[in-house]
Design a binder for these strands. Structure first.
Lengths: 218, 218
DNA sequence: ACCTGAACACCGTTCAAGT
DNA sequence: ACCTGAACACCGTTCAAGT
């Protein structure tokens, strides 16, 4: 490929390449040089389309948030609690599917337009749930904290530099870990080992979400 | 400093150096070469005391968790709710004081002895609160998710490569951000801007913790 | 305007020495 | 056993070219 004003690439192509690296090798694999090589271009050519690596990472987060189906979230035909469940579970599914994505999400403020749109939609749903503006705002943040926190803890137990394992295998790995806990020193932990193995599961995620919504609307 | 079997250093010294780098320059500043230079030693000398960088990071997390006052958490003289508040606020204070520490916490599983001890203690407190073993186990995880998630989101808005700013300044920065939100596109967000500026505060942290405990014990 | 080659200032880690 | 110098295979980013 010869130099010249060709504009063979685009910011979108850069983001696609970055996404591919993320999917294959985790957050550590997302490098400017890796993006360039995937695009068949010299490392510094990437800087034509993107100011720096940090911009790539936050653009990836924005892109992910843009994929959330806000129409379904806003649909007044479905009960608000069901809509919040769908949002939380959808976000979880997307974030877990891309190991290392949570780390990108937590590497900077969520202040992009898609993040704002999601927040706005969340406020509307919570208003429908009967919350006044101030509690609704606080509740929206609490929900985000829960979703992101859950996934961050899940991701912490995953091998960051590998493709994601299915949930059943990850739970099995945790079960093995807790089976090795000495019952004399940590009796309660050992007794609840089976429960604790399942913390990394959709079922526990749902349970926690319900306790949270209970606390918010009682 | 000349080579030879001197044992001038120790694993503890390595961790101290790493902690100093973390405090001064955030997570990105914690490098093997930085540790070595801080100890006045060649980069590879560090590998005499520590197998690799990942071991340094998880040891830092373990050290932090070891600083939690489990005796105060277990003290049956204080009401359990107050004890949980103290634990959560204490963890938050420590983690916020070291910018980048949350990223270390989230970079691997919390399966060290101090993490287990903290979990065990948490289970005991929740049992005192009247929860059966299984709900207690789930609740303990939910609490950890909340604390870690809150701090991770707070840290995401902090400059990772700089010493921590006081809470008041961070809230002020957020206020400026939300004041710039266009009210026509995001009316609810703009209306609740003042509330949302305070999400990064001890007060919101307390509020969320109380909603959580409400949901867990109702 | 867009791309290249070369370079700069970094990484983590390894390996063959020296004492 | 412990440390060193040198090296390897990487980073992100910049800069002076070439077309």
């Amino acid at each position: 490929m010869r130099p010249g004003p060709k504009r063979t690439l685009s910011e979108e192509a850069v983001l696609d390449a970055a996404m591919g690296l993320l999917a294959e090798g985790g957050a550590a694999a997302v490098t400017v040089r890796g993006i360039a090589s995937r695009l068949g271009v010299a490392p510094n050519a990437v800087y034509t389309y993107v100011p720096n690596k940090a911009a790539v990472l936050s653009a990836l987060v924005e892109r992910l948030l843009g994929e959330v189906d806000l129409k379904a979230l806003a649909d007044p035909a479905t009960p608000w609690r069901r809509r919040l469940h769908a949002l939380a579970l959808g976000l979880r599914e997307r974030l877990i599917a891309q190991p290392g994505m949570v780390h990108l999400l937590l590497s900077g403020p969520m202040d992009g337009p898609n993040a704002l749109a999601l927040g706005e939609c969340l406020l509307a749903v919570l208003a429908e749930a009967g919350l006044d503006p101030e509690p609704a705002a606080r509740a929206s943040y609490l929900l985000i904290v829960y979703v992101v926190g859950s996934i961050a803890l899940e991701a912490a137990e995953m091998d960051a530099d590998a493709p994601p394992q299915p949930e059943a295998e990850r739970v099995a790995a945790r079960r093995a870990t807790f089976a090795a806990v000495p019952a004399d020193r940590f009796p309660r932990t050992a007794a609840a080992a089976e429960t604790m193995a399942g913390f990394i599961s959709t079922e526990q995620f749902r349970w926690g979400l319900d306790r949270l919504l209970d606390g918010l609307t009682r």
